[in-house]
Design a protein around this nucleic acid. Structure first.
Lengths: 326, 326
DNA sequence: GTGAAAGCGCTAACAT
DNA sequence: ATGTTAGCGCTTTCAC
C-alpha cells in the first residue's frame, strides 16, 4: 500500500481509504490510486486488515460431510447469502462425532471468524465453552433446540418421524420397518416414527441400522437384510433415512419382483433432486435446504451487525410429498 | 499470549515457542504454560501468526460446484491430504465461467494462501497473471495441459471420448448420440467421441446439449429430445457426460419400453457410487477422484516445502468399466 | 480531503 | 532455555 501511495503521490493511509471507503477520497486521487493498483497488480493483504480492524470477514462453517448433497446444498445457500455481504466461508468437514467437531472448532476459532455456522445441536461441553468464549454469533443448523448456543435454524426431526408414521397408519399399513444410516439425527427420526407407529398399531417396527454413509448400494443391502431376517414378509411400509437409501430399497425390490407400492411402500427423506424423477417417484419428507441456508445467513448477518437476537429459534418446517412409492 | 506468559511467569515469546516448538521450552515451563492455557481457554490468533511468519497455513481451493459429487469428493481427498500436514482449506465455488473464477481468485489471494488449487486449465489472462504474481505453488486439477501455470494433475478428456467411441465401434454400433451438460470439459469429451466415431463409421453423431447442470431429470429430458428429434430411432449407443444423465436416460428408456442394452446402449462418465448398483449397472468411464485429490495434495506439499517442480504434469488416467448398460 | 502515529497479536533474529 | 527488539501490512484515531 505504501508503494501504491508513492506511485500515486499520496500516503499509505489514503490508499487504504480508497479501497475501503472510496467516498472519503477525492475523485482525482482515487483515479490515480486505481491506476497504480492496475499497473502493479497490487492485492491487499486481508490478513493484516483483519488483524488491525478486528474483523476478518471470514465465517467458519462446519458440516458433517461435503460430499453429502444434503449438507453441501445447504452450505451453498448459506455461502451465497454471506458472500453477498462480502463474507468468505471457511468450510470444513467434521465427521459425525462431536469430538472431531470440537477439534475443528478450535482450529477455526484461531482464524478469528466473525461468526460460526454448525450443523446439529450436539456439541461437546468444551466446544460450547470455546464458542461462547469467542464472543461471536453462532448459528446451529438442521435441527431445533430449546437451548441453542446462540441462534438455531432447523426443524424437528421427531416431528418428521411422527408425520411419516401417521401417514403409514392412515394408509392402512399394519407393518413397518426403518432402514437408516445410523447418524444421530436419523436415529431420532426413526425412533419417533417407531414410537408413534407402535402406539397407533400396537405393532413393533423392525430397525435396520446400516452404520455407514447412505448410498444406493446400502439401500439394496438394507432391504436384503430386512427380508432375509424375515421382516415385512407380508408387505408393509419402509421409512428410510434418506432418498438414496429409499432408491436402493426400490431398486432391490424391483430386482426381487416386488411391486412398489403394492407389495412394498417406501418413504424417503430429503427430497433430493432425483426423487421426483425415478420410477416410481419417491414419497419423501421435503426440507427446504436452500431456505435453511439463507435463513441462517440472514440471522447471522443481523447479529453481526449488532442487532440483538430477536428470535433465537427458527423452525423452517417440512412437508411430506406423496409420490408413487407409497 | 502476554497474559498467558504473566500467569506462567514467563515472557510472551516463550508462550509462542511453547505452542509452535515445544521442544525448545523446558518441561516445567511448558507445564505451567499449558495449565494457564487450559485455565483461560486461550486460543492463539492465527491471523497475527500468519502476518508475522508470512505463512498462513491456508490453501485456497476453487471448484466449479460443491454440490457436484465429482468435485466435492476430489476436494475432500485433497483437504484430507493437506490437513494431515496442518493446512486448512479455503474452499469456494467458481461456477463454470473463467470470469467468475477470476473474481474468486482475487478474493482468495488477498487471504495470502500458501498455495492454490484450481479446477480445470482454462483461466483468464488476468487470473494467470495474479496467480503468477503471488509467487505461490498452484495446482490445476481434473485436466492435463502442456502449459500448466505450475503443476497439473488430471487426465485427457479427449482420450476418454475416443476410448468410448472405440468401444462403441468395436461393439458394432452403427449409430450414436451424445447427451451432455454443456460444460467445457464435457464438450471436449463429446467432441473427441464424435470425431472418432464419425472417422471410424462415417456416420454423424447427434449432439444434445442440455446447457444445464446434470441431473436425473435432465437425462430423461435429453433422451426425450433425442427421440422426438428422430435421432437413434433404430437403436445405437448414447454417451452421456455424467452417470447421473446416463441414469436418467436409462430411466426414460425403461418408461418408454426400450430394452437396455439391446434397444439402446448407454455409457456414462465418472463412475459415481450408484453406477454399479442401479439395474442395469452403468457402463462408464472411471476416474479415480480420490487419487486426483491425494496426488494434488502431495505435489503441492512437495512444492511448498521447497522442492523444485519435479514433474509438472501428472496423468492419473481413466478406465472404461463395462457393466450392463452397454 | 489527507496525513502522522500507534497498535492489532504474533514470529524471527539475535542476544544472553 | 529464555528474553529483547523489530517488524508483518494494514486500520484507527486524531490532527490538520
Amino acid at each position: 500500500m505504501a508503494a501504491i501511495g508513492r506511485l500515486a503521490g499520496v500516503s499509505q493511509v489514503t490508499v487504504s481509504r480508497a479501497l475501503s471507503n472510496p467516498s472519503k477520497v477525492s475523485p482525482e486521487t482515487l483515479a490515480r490510486i486505481r491506476e497504480a493498483i492496475d499497473l502493479t497488480g497490487f492485492v491487499p493483504n486481508a490478513l493484516a486488515g483483519a488483524l488491525a480492524s478486528r474483523r476478518s470477514m471470514l465465517i467458519s462453517a462446519l458440516v458433517p460431510s461435503i460430499t453429502n448433497i444434503i449438507y453441501s446444498s445447504m452450505a451453498r445457500a448459506f455461502s451465497e447469502g454471506m458472500r453477498a455481504r462480502g463474507y468468505q466461508i471457511l468450510l470444513s468437514e467434521t465427521g459425525e462425532t462431536p469430538e472431531d467437531e470440537e477439534r475443528m472448532i478450535a482450529l477455526h476459532l484461531s482464524r478469528q471468524p466473525d461468526a460460526v455456522m454448525l450443523t446439529g445441536i450436539h456439541h461437546t461441553a468444551r466446544a460450547r465453552k470455546a464458542l461462547l468464549g469467542a464472543g461471536i454469533p453462532v448459528v446451529e443448523l438442521w435441527d431445533i433446540s430449546q437451548t441453542p448456543i446462540d441462534i438455531c435454524v432447523g426443524f424437528s426431526h421427531g416431528a418428521t418421524g411422527r408425520a411419516v408414521a401417521d401417514f403409514a397408519c392412515d394408509a392402512g399399513h399394519g407393518t413397518a420397518a426403518v432402514i437408516h444410516a445410523g447418524d444421530e439425527r436419523a436415529v431420532r427420526r426413526m425412533e419417533a416414527f417407531s414410537q408413534r407407529f407402535t402406539q397407533r398399531t400396537g405393532r413393533a417396527v423392525t430397525d435396520i441400522n446400516l452404520r455407514t454413509p447412505a448410498s444406493l448400494g446400502q439401500g439394496r443391502r438394507g432391504l436384503s437384510l430386512l427380508l432375509e431376517g424375515g421382516g415385512l414378509a407380508g408387505g408393509g411400509l419402509i421409512f428410510c433415512s434418506s432418498d438414496l437409501l429409499a432408491h436402493g430399497v426400490i431398486t432391490e425390490a424391483q430386482v426381487r419382483g416386488l411391486r412398489i407400492p403394492d407389495d412394498l411402500a417406501v418413504v424417503g427423506f430429503g427430497d433430493q433432486e432425483f426423487a421426483a424423477d425415478v420410477v416410481p417417484g419417491i414419497t419423501t419428507v421435503r426440507v427446504d435446504r436452500d431456505a435453511l441456508g439463507r435463513q441462517a445467513a440472514q440471522a447471522l448477518l443481523a447479529r453481526i451487525e449488532g442487532q440483538p437476537a430477536e428470535r433465537p429459534v427458527f423452525d423452517v418446517g417440512f412437508r411430506l410429498l406423496r409420490r408413487g412409492s407409497a
